[in-house]
């Protein structure tokens, strides 16, 4: 199964709607609830990152019998130092993002904690791609 979702910068009204849709799909596929939770928490954090930091982005979701692979590709400022960004507590979020309950520098570490595999590639001034992989069995 393949799905694509578009995400807009600053759209905190719809932030999380992709994660919600993926959660419903995984439920319909009778995936174990703990795997669903890990996957949608990671996806939600990454989705909010696009809304909070990028100009726009696309989320590509592929599900087969063994695993779910999610690629979040954004156009945005990029991440100059990925190792720094992965540190707990490091954040460049704006005050408006913090008012929404995010921006504490916990998102990327939490994505890592909730995935079997995670990768980040980024080019400053171009954008960032986050890939998330979780086994479904």
């Amino acid at each position: 199964m393949h799905f694509e979702y578009h995400v807009e910068s600053g759209d905190f009204i719809n932030a999380g709607s992709t994660s919600s849709a993926v959660k419903k799909t995984l439920k319909q596929l009778n995936v174990d609830s703990s795997i669903i939770k890990r996957t949608v928490v990671a996806l939600y954090e990454a989705e909010v990152n696009i809304v909070a930091h990028a100009y726009k982005g696309t989320i590509y979701v592929d599900i087969d019998q063994e695993a779910i692979t999610i690629r979040l590709v954004d156009e945005g400022p990029g991440i100059p130092d990925i190792d720094k960004a992965m540190e707990m507590g490091y954040s460049t979020a704006s005050p408006s993002v913090r008012e929404m309950g995010f921006g504490a520098g916990m998102g990327l570490p939490n994505i890592k904690n909730n995935t079997d595999r995670m990768s980040i590639t980024s080019k400053v001034g171009v954008g960032t791609t986050v890939e998330i992989y979780n086994k479904l069995q």
Partner: peptide, 15 residues
């Protein structure tokens, strides 16, 4: 004390 849509979304994702 946070009352916005993301409060609900967060609860949804966190179960």
């Amino acid at each position: 004390g946070l009352s916005n849509l993301q409060t609900i979304r967060t609860a949804e994702m966190a179960g």
